[in-house]
């Protein structure tokens, strides 16, 4: 007999016990663990989803803020740049103006300095030259020179051009007071007579002359009447020379003053 009924019963009981044991020790704990883990995973996934959505939200917000901040920053930067440029332009203009003013002031000062110096130098030179000339001519002025001067004077009277002659003649004739003949030395009689003759001949009238001396003439003779003057004197030459030199000086100052900003005062002095 292949079937032993006692064994069948025992095995059936064994199997039932095994079912209970396995339920108790295997299926329940394992299924419970799986269920718990699934819940955990689901929870974690939900958490992750929530976190992700929150992160997405945060990110969006951050992006928005970032964009707004960027725009604001760009606006502020542009504004600041504009302001800075305007300020720079203003400052530059001011600086230019100040520099120009300072340059002009400096130039003017330099010009004034140069002019003053020039004037001083020319005046001094003039004075020195004239002093030397006066001294030399005064030293040389002798009676014979006076005589020569008288000759020169008379010749000049005679050689006067028609117009000047007429004007002077009118003045001499109309003047009631005697015409004044100035000389640096007292004129001797013959010379006085020669001058009187020459005047009379030249103007064809009897002109009264009054002779006087004037050291200012340096050396020479002058006939003065009613605002008209004729004569020859070294002082006259010197005055003419002085006026020519002064004119030249003024002409020379002009181009120098134009080039002054590039020239140091020392150079200006040197060149002048």
């Amino acid at each position: 007999m292949l079937i032993d009924w006692f064994t069948v019963g025992a095995q059936a009981l064994n199997f039932l016990i095994l079912v209970w044991l396995m339920k108790r020790f295997l299926y329940q704990p394992v299924l419970q663990a799986i269920a718990t883990r699934e819940k955990l995973v689901a929870k974690e996934l939900a958490d992750a989803d929530a976190k992700r959505s929150e992160a997405q939200k945060d990110r969006d917000e951050f992006h928005k803020k970032n964009e707004a901040f960027d725009q604001e920053r760009a606006g502020l930067l542009a504004k600041a740049t504009d302001e800075a440029q305007a300020e720079r332009k203003r400052l530059l203009d001011e600086a230019h103006k100040a520099a120009d003013a300072l340059g002009a002031q400096r130039q003017a000062a330099l010009i004034i300095d140069a002019r003053n110096l020039n004037q001083a130098v020319s005046r001094r030179t003039q004075e020195e030259v004239f002093a030397i000339a006066r001294k030399a001519l005064a030293d040389l002025a002798t009676t014979s020179l006076e005589e020569r001067m008288g000759e020169v004077f008379t010749r000049r009277l005679r050689e006067m051009d028609g117009k000047s002659k007429a004007v002077l003649g009118d003045a001499l004739k109309k003047n009631s007071t005697p015409a004044l003949v100035l000389s640096s030395f007292e004129l001797p009689g013959p010379q006085r007579a020669a001058i009187q003759n020459a005047v009379n001949e030249t103007f064809s009238a009897d002109i009264h002359l009054q002779f006087a001396t004037s050291p200012d003439l340096v050396s020479g003779i002058e006939l003065t009447t009613n605002g008209q003057k004729v004569g020859w004197s070294i002082a006259g030459y010197l005055t003419a020379l002085e006026s020519v030199v002064g004119k030249l000086m003024k002409e020379k100052e002009k181009p120098e003053s134009e080039a002054v900003p590039a020239v140091t005062p020392e150079k200006a002095i040197k060149s002048s």
Binding site: L18, L26, P29, V30
Partner: peptide, 18 residues
């Protein structure tokens, strides 16, 4: 039965749920 029950008990004694 012993092997199955004891093995299951051994393994499921400290089941991790994480």
């Amino acid at each position: 039965m012993l092997v199955m029950a004891a093995g299951s008990r051994l393994i499921t004694r400290r089941l991790s749920t994480d």
